[in-house]
């Protein structure tokens, strides 16, 4: 994907993966933030609603990966995903829901997310995303 950090051909220092956590639940935001920063050395930020994520991008923010909750007040995750894709945002979007199989998953993927995982997000799921995209570095 074009917007991703490309493998550095010269071998010089690579920057950290930037991640945005979009979730209305403060417990989840805190856990995901810690997990991404501690286990994967990502530079993580959080917002509590899909609309905030869209606004951030309208203001020029840019991330490598967005971890997007499904059900949120004001704007749900799949709606925000659709909006972001419509704006030309090409980063990885990982949908997270309490019901990944079925309607939630279909809505997320149809909206343009690259993955849809069942809550809770854990180390194995994040590793799977990173393994699929070896351009990313966690060191």
């Amino acid at each position: 994907m074009e917007s991703m950090k490309q493998r550095n051909k010269g071998g010089s220092r690579r920057s950290r993966i930037s991640a945005l956590i979009v979730d209305d639940d403060a417990v989840v935001r805190k856990i995901h933030m810690m997990m991404l920063e501690r286990l994967f050395n990502m530079d993580a930020k959080t917002v509590s609603d899909g609309n905030e994520a869209v606004d951030m991008h309208r203001c020029g923010a840019n991330f490598d990966i967005i971890f997007m909750d499904k059900e949120m007040p004001i704007m749900d995750g799949h709606e925000a995903t659709k909006e972001l894709r419509g704006m030309g945002v090409k980063c990885l979007i990982v949908g997270i829901t309490t019901r990944a199989n079925g309607k939630d998953g279909e809505e997320f993927l149809a909206a343009g997310s690259n993955y849809c995982f069942e809550k809770p997000l854990d180390r194995t799921k994040i590793e799977r995303v990173l393994q699929d995209h070896p351009n990313f570095t966690t060191t």
Binding site: D25, V27, I31
Partner: peptide, 11 residues
């Protein structure tokens, strides 16, 4: 839904 999400996130 919210309670399910946070309870699953702390285990």
């Amino acid at each position: 839904h919210q309670l399910k999400g946070s309870s699953s996130s702390i285990g």
